[in-house]
Nucleic acid binder design. Structure first.
Lengths: 187, 187
DNA sequence: TCCATTTTTTGACGAATGTCAAAAATCCAT
DNA sequence: ATGGATTTTTGACATTCGTCAAAAAATGGA
């Protein structure tokens, strides 16, 4: 929990009262490898902070698991679409390592927004950061070659390659595992 | 301006005072076809609301113009990365039709956030909507075939095909103009 | 350590898409 | 309405990438 309070200082500073309220709002969740934080069809009503561990978001397409996102230490995690709209999630979130998370429900967070404008501001600013990250992934997906995307991963987020099997990494990059293997062998 | 106030009711409702403050904050901008709202290298310090007209965001890559976004009536427009970070934009925003926009500076909007939490909330909610839109585009870009992306465009945003030349549409879909032409001919 | 399981690599081939060039169609200002 | 400019389509070919199958390598539990 200290880690969460410390991490959000990267985005904006909170009063002691707001920090205390946040601390009240979050609850610890401990899960082991391969467990699910969310399965498709369920509505995601919580926002999570990943303190320790690793997980992936994936959905099923034509019988294959398509991994589109990884989460590691200090990432916020949710099924964004389901969380915002209240509709059932189309994707799964599965732990890749035993993990410690902190969870807050959407309702509870809305209550904190009403009590503390600074918390609503914090979340707005965090969202902006995640928007920019997604924007970069979109540009890479649409306008860069597979090799360029792999090299980008190699330089920007090498820890992914160290902690994740090649299959999920390949679909994260939007290519087949065989192609990723071949790209890797010739770089 | 009425149109802006009316449009934001889709996201959340504002008090009369907040509406009046917004009205104070925005200034009208009228531009004609082919003019630029933003050119690469300049920092984008404004958020725009497009009341009437059409525009595109594009950047230059290997001597080609890569269009990655279109804006039409009731869209909010900015160079998000530049607006948030204060860094120079890497992209251009060009009018595709004569247009009427409303502009507010980032500083002025920040002032409104401090005066009216409901305005900060409105912007947070609008951002959430845009995040979900980007998420969908990302999934399409990375995991769908060119033909699927074209069919999605055909069903979800057919107005793009009616108001935009094929070249920019092709790069919006992440394919060459020739491929788009061929997909079109066989559907 | 050894074996079974999982992960990664390699090979052969086909499908999808890009590139370059030119023809055809369309658009627009005079 | 007409001619020049722009946009779209078509053709030929090269390249990238996916798929299926099998081999090789790495991993993890007994």
């Amino acid at each position: 929990m200290k880690q969460l309070l410390n991490h959000i200082k990267n985005y904006s500073s909170l009063s002691m009262e707001a920090q205390a309220a946040l601390q009240e709002g979050f609850e610890e969740v401990v899960l082991s490898k391969n467990e699910y934080l969310l399965t498709e069809g369920k509505t995601c009503r919580h926002l999570y902070f990943l303190q320790q561990g690793a997980l992936r978001g994936f959905y099923n397409l034509d019988g294959k698991e398509i991994t589109y996102w990884f989460g590691f230490e200090n990432d916020f995690v949710t099924s964004f679409h389901s969380y915002i709209t209240g509709e059932p999630a189309v994707e799964n979130i599965q732990l890749m390592e035993g993990s410690i998370l902190w969870a807050i429900s959407k309702d509870r967070l809305a209550g904190l927004f009403n009590q503390y404008q600074e918390i609503e501001r914090l979340v707005r600013i965090i969202q902006e950061k995640y928007y920019m990250q997604l924007e970069e992934r979109f540009v890479n997906a649409q306008f860069k070659t597979a090799t360029e995307r792999y090299e980008h991963l190699l330089h920007q987020t090498p820890h992914i390659l160290e902690r994740v099997p090649l299959g999920p990494v390949a679909s994260y990059l939007g290519i087949s595992q065989e192609t990723l293997s071949r790209i890797r062998s010739r770089i």
